[in-house]
Amino acid sequence: MSGQRCWIFGDNIDTDQIMPSQYLVLPMDEMLKHTLETQSESFAKQMEAGDFIVGGENFGCGSSREQAPLALKKLGVRAIIAKSFARIFFRNAINIGLLLIEIPSVEEFSEGDLLEVNVKEGLLKDATTSKNYNFFPPTGLVKDIFESGGLIQYLDNKK
């Protein structure tokens, strides 16, 4: 079976949970070890590049800290799948080229399910349950920024 595992989290996972405030001054490689530690003892230790995160409603609410999406991107998270995302987290993720996928039926995923994504077709596949999910891939300006790899790269391309 192909795909990579997903890690399940709940509703309203705020950025203080993704990266608690006392670690914000650490160098990035040290900071990464604490990613989501209040929610999962094993995530930062065991996750592998290419894995997925599944959240509920309002993922990434709270503080504007870009270290939250950046840590997930640096760890190699392929995409975050959630019912909804908080606004600042959403734009920070676009600006650093981290894929966010909105899907209403996140309850259908189980911890460890193997997932695959095709961004162009807006298709997410759960290889463990053999179910397919459609999502709206980014469009317009958001698509341009995302496809450039982030806001800075987008600016470079415009030069």
């Binding site: 870009e66 600042i88 920070n92 600006n95 650093i96 800075i152």
Partner: peptide, 10 residues
């Protein structure tokens, strides 16, 4: 409104 550091740098 609040934004992240990449937006701030931009």
């Amino acid at each position: 409104t609040g934004v992240g550091t990449t937006d701030g740098a931009f």
